[in-house]
Structure formats: C-alpha cells, structure tokens
Simulated assay, not measured.
Amino acid sequence: MTDKPRPVLIAGPHRSGADGDPRPMAADLARRETAARPVLAAGHLPVTGARPALPVRRDVAEIPRRTPQEAR
C-alpha cells in the first residue's frame, strides 16, 4: 500500500431507471456524494461516476468565464 492520495471512482446509477425524472437522478447523486465523504476524509480524491463535473455543476454559474482570446 501507499500513502499517496489516489483518485477513487464512486460509481452508481445516474440516469438508469430515472426515465428523465430529475428527482431520482438527484437522489442517486446524493448517495454517491455521501459515499465519497469518507474517501475524501481518508485523503483521496473521490470521483462520483463517469462524469466528474457533476459535483461542481451547481457552482458553474459563479465561475468567471473568459473567451479563448482572453485566456492567452
């Protein structure tokens, strides 16, 4: 074993069986986020499912954006 932090995939359903209903999708995400907490507390990087951007999507509106020209 190593003490080096590692990315740890927290897998679970997201759209499966939800039939497009955001409520079960949000509940599934909440379960994965709950499972991710002890992984983070152990010093690792939890990645919730195959879409790593899900945990930050709620904050996207507050992130300043730049055009490609401004980024240079």
Rank of each mutant, 00 (worst) to 15 (best):
V39E: 01
R51L: 15
A50Q: 01
A53Y: 09
V56H: 15
R31A: 13
M1E: 07
D19Q: 14
R57A: 13
A41D: 09
D59V: 14
A18C: 06
R57C: 10
R51A: 15
R23N: 03
G49Y: 00
R37M: 11
P22Y: 01
R58A: 12
I63H: 08
P46I: 02
A42R: 01
V47Y: 00
T48M: 10
V47S: 06
R66H: 13
E33Q: 13
P64G: 02
T2S: 14
M25Y: 04
A36D: 03
P46L: 01
G20L: 08
E62W: 15
V60E: 15
T34V: 03
P46N: 00
V39F: 04
A26Q: 03
A53V: 15
M1L: 10
G17M: 07
M1Y: 09
V56M: 14
P64V: 15
P13L: 02
G12M: 03
P5C: 03
I63A: 08
L9N: 14
P13R: 04
R72I: 15
T34L: 09
R66L: 15
I63K: 05
I10Q: 05
M1Q: 09
A11I: 04
P5D: 04
H14T: 07
V8K: 04
R66N: 12
A35F: 02
V47L: 00
R51C: 15
G49Q: 05
V60H: 14
G17Q: 00
G43D: 00
K4G: 10
E70A: 08
M25L: 11
A26V: 11
A27D: 10
R66D: 13
A36L: 05
R58S: 14
A71E: 10
G43R: 01
A36F: 04
T34W: 13
P38N: 04
D21L: 04
L9S: 10
P52S: 05
H14Y: 15
D59F: 15
P52C: 04
S16V: 02
P68N: 00
T2E: 09
E70M: 08
P13I: 01
R37C: 11
P24D: 05
R65C: 15
G17K: 02
V8W: 02
D21K: 07
A35Y: 09
A71W: 12
P5T: 03
V60N: 13
P22E: 00
G43K: 02
T48N: 00
D19V: 09
K4M: 13
P55V: 06
P52A: 01
D28R: 07
D3I: 12
P55F: 04
Q69F: 14
G12V: 02
V56N: 15
L54Q: 07
P24F: 08
R6K: 10
L54C: 08
R72K: 06
D3N: 07
P22G: 06
G17R: 02
T34A: 12
E33Y: 11
L9H: 14
E70D: 01
L54K: 05
R15V: 06
M1R: 09
G12I: 05
A53W: 12
L45N: 00
M1N: 09
R31K: 11
E33V: 07
T2N: 12
R6H: 09
